[in-house]
């Protein structure tokens, strides 16, 4: 499934497709949004292990529902949802969402964006590790590096939503910025991970929960936006 939005037909006035959701970072031009109100057109998912993904109406960031993801109780299990859409003209992609995570050792919430540029598969990923209360990014060598100064008292709980946005510059295969609530982490100049394998020429945006310990881990996400940025 590769999906854009309906045209704003016949209007040259360059308006947003849809009213933007209640997010902290209004920059960029929304090219795909999902507030989990229309499951028929929503995400695709992958579940590795005995996890599950469903829509939950009890604790959404904004009504009517959020995505509720549980990973299996085995180290390395994960549950993720993903979206595919076109690479924007500027090749700078912003991905944002609101997320809330369970208080539990070994919970990892991650956001990944990848695209194939006909030479390399470019992958940018950031994740929040409950154990260290810190953000990490996927480095060029395929390992994880803690984002400097990102260790902070992020209040964690399944009813406490945080807003996060990652901007990646695929034209230069570099990270740009990570916004978390009121913080901005400048990642410019950091190369994304590149591998030789090919999958597609669109962008794939992944939101997921990963088990670092052998228990079930839970994350809620809501108000997903994918934007074209021009920074």
């Amino acid at each position: 499934m590769v999906k854009g939005q309906p045209d704003y037909q016949g209007v040259v006035g360059r308006q947003e497709v849809t009213t933007r959701q209640n997010l902290l970072f209004p920059g960029g031009r929304a090219i795909l949004i999902d507030d989990f109100s229309s499951p028929a057109e929503a995400f695709r998912d992958v579940i590795v292990g005995a996890g599950q993904i469903n829509l939950q109406i009890g604790y959404p960031f904004t009504a009517p529902a959020c995505a509720y993801m549980l990973s299996g109780a085995v180290i390395g299990n994960y549950s993720m949802i993903y979206y595919e859409t076109g690479l924007p003209r500027t090749e700078q992609v912003g991905v944002e969402c609101a997320f809330a995570m369970q208080t539990g050792a070994g919970t990892r919430f991650y956001i990944e964006v990848r695209t194939y540029d006909l030479t390399n598969l470019n992958t940018a990923e950031v994740y929040f590790s409950y154990d260290n209360n810190s953000w990490y990014y996927l480095n060029a060598a395929g390992g994880s590096t803690m984002i400097p100064n990102s260790t902070r008292g992020l209040r964690v709980g399944l009813s406490t939503y945080h807003r996060v946005k990652l901007i990646v510059d695929f034209a230069n295969a570099e990270y740009m910025f990570l916004y978390v609530d009121d913080r901005v982490y400048d990642l410019r100049g950091i190369a994304v991970n590149q591998a030789a394998s090919a999958i597609f020429t669109h962008i794939r945006v992944v939101y997921g929960v990963y088990s670092e310990t052998a228990v079930i881990h839970v994350v809620r996400i809501d108000n997903v936006s994918i934007t074209e940025e021009e920074l």
Binding site: V2, K3, G4, Q5, P6, D7, Y8, Q9, G10, V11, R14, Q15, E16, V17, R29, I31, L32, T85, G86, L87, P88, R89, H202, E228
Partner: peptide, 8 residues
């Protein structure tokens, strides 16, 4: 290109 094309 109208809004909605998403580079597609």
């Amino acid at each position: 290109f109208p809004p909605g094309c998403a580079g597609l």
